[in-house]
Amino acid sequence: MLSSTADHLYWMARSMERAENMARMLDVTYRMSLLKGATQEPFQQWSAMLSISGLHYEYTRDYGDVTADKVMHFMALDETNPSSIMSSLHNARENGRAVRGTITSEMWEALNATWLEMRARREAGIPADGISAFFDWVKERSHLSRGLTHGTMLRGDAFGFLRLGTFFERADNTARILDVKYHILLPSLTDVGGAADYYQWGALLRSVSAFESYRKVYRDVITPKRVAELLILRGDMPRSLMACVHEVNRLVQEIDGPRSRELQRLVGMLYAELRYGRIDDVIGVGLHEYLTSVVTRLNAIGDEINRTYFWASDEPAA
């Protein structure tokens, strides 16, 4: 496969996944901010949204003070914010357009229709009573896109790069959302084993579609430790770090390139740690410290993915 094609496929999938995750995060923040007895002021909830994406500076410059409406606008509709839902859907569509000969026509049509509708929705504005419905729509379009990838794409490298983009983005996102929300919900880690605010933790679990799974797996009250275990180490939980890195690990073996040794090594080491890690050890290190180190290592893996597959050199394979 052409290196440039692989690059577009990877970013097409990453952008769509990013739009979905942004919708999930905004939705959970919105819901949590509506809850009575929120452990923190809404201000901090929305401020944390900006921390997740590292966009505090740009936000303050363009919007001033932090309010729910303004953060939602910035994160959902603002084209100048490269991580907004609007920008992500646009990126997904433009990357898809660049490789529309490689993806199936059904996939392209869905991407294009999503973008056309997103533009129309932005023109109309998101109605105050339709905020969650909007986020649901974004999630549905992402599900559709992923479903079409699964249901119509030839199994091969192109499929592999789409999956790689999806799972890499998701791993990064799960690490970030968990880190930020954990911080807010549990400023001091002393009572990490105790029972937590059911609604707040429930909302966090719902944001990664893990609420029902939690019930099935633990059949017990929600504790922060179990939430961390579910979202970091459980391989059967499809948005957990373990599940995402497991897929990434499989994919970098499958999409074997002449220069993929280092990439396979980096991913393999992270995978082994998650595979054989124990939650008590994670808590022992400090959850925030642990997740920060995971994000740093994911960044290194992202750089190596670029070097391995996309920055093609003119030199023949070694």
């Binding site: 496969m1 052409l2 290196s3 440039s4 692989a6 490298d157 999409i255 390139g257 002449p258 597959y309 996309f310 093609a312 050199s313 003119d314 023949p316 394979a317």
Partner: peptide, 16 residues
Amino acid sequence: LFVRENRVYMRTTHGP
């Protein structure tokens, strides 16, 4: 695409 020794290659994930 690139040309080496009068031959045309495309850059792919598996090399030229």
